[in-house]
Design a binder for these strands. Sequence first.
DNA 1: TATGACTTGTCAATATTTGGCTAATATAAG
DNA 2: CTTATATTAGCCAAATATTGACAAGTCATA
Lengths: 97, 97
Amino acid sequence: MHFGERIRELRESQGLLQRQLAANLEIDTPMFSKIERGERKAKRDQVLKIAGLLKTNEQELLALWLADQIKELVTDEDQALQALKIAEQDINQANTK
Amino acid sequence: MHFGERIRELRESQGLLQRQLAANLEIDTPMFSKIERGERKAKRDQVLKIAGLLKTNEQELLALWLADQIKELVTDEDQALQALKIAEQDINQANTK
DNA sequence: TATGACTTGTCAATATTTGGCTAATATAAG
DNA sequence: CTTATATTAGCCAAATATTGACAAGTCATA
């Protein structure tokens, strides 16, 4: 489940149209469509606005949005999983220190 | 241990100078210095060249280089670890499918 | 002081990202 | 079949980020 899929689910379950959310984000409908399909990446502040508009958890959407970017970064890399492990260790290290 | 630290270790243990490696990469010494200190990010093909010049494992360096970028992407995000988990799951999913 | 290795700060060139526009497609109603 | 509305596709310009070069600085040592 990527970010776009999730916001589409939420949007449709609430009977909202792309153009309504797009208007609130001050972008046009084609751009919003691209974000939902994962063709374009939302900006961080757009994620927060979307969470507000869809009355959902900011944390969940931010996590999906970040995960999309991580996946994008490591796709086609043989060392993808190894790199994730290293990053995780380093972050944990930093947190406990 | 980030990418720059590792290549500095390797370079110094082999008695090489920044300007020697920089010349081989066709960048100037200040740029190489910045890469070692993590102030600038190497490009992927530079990572491979560096591995060759330092006679070391491409995989190890690529993993560190990717990990740096992942960390950069998620620093200051509360959902960093959660996002890493999601990305890991999705990648494993894709691999087994 | 003088030299060599490395670092810092700034700038221009380049590349990437973002968003808007127009047109195309799909779906549903009359 | 036509119309109306929603969504998607493709292209282009504006904004932003990245890359590398250059000049000047620090630091250590002879």
